[in-house]
């Protein structure tokens, strides 16, 4: 760790979705897994792909593309599952690829621009500018909001 790193720095995992770069604080990430067999769970919202056996723990899996209402893509060699933990929930997020851990200086984080009208806007905590990269910071609480899960299932059933 460099001496310049101040306390306010944010260490994040960077991942890609449809060409854009997103970030989740490492504190919320448990592990990054390769894609494995997913058991479909019937009667759930479309973005819940099912459950996997994560070393003996049955873990639900969300397709983040589908969650952000982007078109779904075929899974490839680079596709990863990021296991995140929020309070007592552990959930896997399918992303196109994940390969970077970066320290973001606090000064570089800006609130999200209000111009965005797409769905993903409500799950965004802010954006971070790093040299020429633009990282979108994810708000996990919103992404994993169980209320949304219930509403959708309720409408379906």
């Amino acid at each position: 760790m460099s001496i310049h790193t101040s306390v306010a720095d944010l260490k994040v995992i960077v991942f890609q979705l449809k060409g854009k770069e997103y970030a989740i604080p490492v504190s919320q990430v448990r592990s990054i897994e390769k894609l494995q067999h997913i058991t479909r769970v019937p009667g759930t919202v479309p973005f819940v792909k099912g459950v996997i056996n994560l070393r003996g723990v049955v873990t639900p899996i969300i397709d983040l593309r589908s969650r952000f209402e982007l078109e779904e893509a075929e899974h490839s060699d680079t596709t990863r599952t990021i296991i995140v933990a929020l309070e007592d929930m552990e959930v896997g997020l399918i992303v196109d690829s994940a390969n970077d851990v970066i320290d973001i200086p606090a000064d570089n984080i800006e609130p999200q621009p209000d111009v965005v009208g797409t769905v993903e806007a409500e799950y965004i905590n802010g954006v971070a500018k790093l040299e020429k990269r633009l990282l979108i910071l994810i708000n996990l609480e919103k992404v994993l909001n169980p209320d949304q899960l219930k509403e959708s299932t309720g409408a379906e059933g």
């Binding site: 769970v41 009667g43 459950v51 003996g56 007592d88 552990e90």
Partner: peptide
């Protein structure tokens, strides 16, 4: 898992011999 706590007609899951759920 706590995320999917009420799924219709599914009371839980198990891990089979081949490691699948």
């Amino acid at each position: 898992g706590n995320y999917l706590n009420s799924v219709f007609a599914i009371s839980g899951a198990t891990i089979l011999g081949d490691g699948q759920v």
